[in-house]
């Protein structure tokens, strides 16, 4: 995969919010994030609330301009474009939001919601629109009859399918999925996750999948990045990160999810104390204040250490034979 050019490439992306009267108080929501996503791949981003994963998604969509760094789509740098140039390119990268309830205009029928952007961007002719809507609805697993309905007549899962159909209608090169299943019932979550997997297999859909549950991300992603307070602390293939976590934070995330397996209940867990953030961590490992494995001086080494097979971790312990049990 690595030989071809990436669909989207992000270099040292950062977002600093300023508050207060003079703008002196700063919050660095995303702090120097870099990664590439290749065609047909699903890249998962996990992390707890407030770690900057949604800000990252919004910056990729250029809904917010990054304060530093670059976003490059198919070799075209996006963050320096003017509004008009950007608008013309926008169909190529689409987004699905977390809250499906407010994602669809309550006063429009599904048919209009899907066709209006297509017609505006000349993705299809007016005469083919009905045919295309039918095909798109079929693709996301909705009967064609729903085209005449209004958003409030749907369940959350169905609305999320409509959102996905709208995003796919413009033939995007990449779809940014910002916590698409987080607001849904568990059984509905599974359906949507299966749908995403199917779309990846049948349409070679390239996507960035943001979520806070590692299990869901592992299920749909090829590669995963774990974020903590605005930085990527571990990245690698989905199986490496999920089965062989190298960063104590990834371990803690995995340990935090309950298990149905009886034998697993007695396992030793890392349970994190306290809450993220608060202290000044701008020059060191953001996780060090909560880390059970902290050693003298380890928090100053922020470099990503290669563990082989594209697996990287920011923790020094990763080099000394994993996190230990």
């Amino acid at each position: 995969m690595a030989e071809s050019a990436p669909v989207i490439s992000v270099e040292q992306l950062a977002m600093t919010y300023r508050d207060g009267l003079t703008g002196r108080r700063r919050t660095r929501a995303v702090d120097g994030v870099s990664f590439q996503i290749y065609e047909g791949e699903t890249f998962g981003v996990v992390g707890e609330s407030g770690c900057g994963k949604s800000t990252l998604a919004r910056m990729l969509m250029l809904l917010e301009r990054p304060t530093e760094g670059s976003v490059t789509l198919n070799g075209q740098r996006l963050d320096t474009l003017s509004g008009r140039e950007l608008a013309a390119l926008r169909p190529k990268f689409q987004m699905v939001f977390q809250d499906s309830g407010s994602s669809l205009n309550p006063r429009k029928r599904v048919y209009d919601i899907i066709t209006e952007p297509m017609l505006y961007h000349h993705v299809c002719e007016r005469s083919e629109a009905a045919q295309r809507v039918k095909a798109l609805l079929g693709l996301v697993g909705l009967p064609e009859g729903v085209a005449d309905r209004y958003p409030h007549e749907f369940s959350g899962g169905q609305r999320q399918r409509v959102c996905l159909a709208r995003a796919l209608s413009l033939d995007p090169d990449i779809v940014i999925l910002d916590e698409p299943v987080s607001a849904l019932d568990v059984s509905v979550q599974a359906q949507i996750l299966n749908l995403l997997r199917d779309l990846k297999e049948t349409r070679r859909m390239t996507s960035l999948f943001v979520a806070h549950g590692l299990a869901a991300v592992h299920y749909v992603s090829d590669r995963i990045a774990v974020m903590y307070l605005g930085r990527i602390v571990e990245t690698g293939s989905a199986d490496d990160v999920f089965h062989r976590p190298a960063h104590p934070y990834t371990r803690a995330l995995l340990d935090a999810s309950p298990s149905a397996d009886y034998a697993e209940r007695g396992r030793k867990r890392i349970v994190l104390a306290g809450e993220a953030g608060g202290e000044d961590w701008s020059n060191g490992c953001a996780f060090c204040t909560r880390c059970p494995f902290r050693t003298e001086g380890c928090e100053r080494d922020l470099s990503m250490k290669a563990l082989g097979g594209g697996h990287f971790s920011a923790c020094t312990r990763a080099l000394n034979g994993g996190t230990g049990a």
């Binding site: 689409q94 939001f97 952007p117 505006y120």
Partner: peptide
């Protein structure tokens, strides 16, 4: 602040569409 507004921006829809077709009816 609604997502359908953001989705319109993300789809590169023109201002007149967003103002008169999406916001006004609401």
């Amino acid at each position: 602040e609604t997502n359908f507004f953001k989705a319109d921006i993300a789809a590169g829809m023109p201002r007149r569409y967003i103002l008169f077709s999406e916001i006004l009816p609401n």
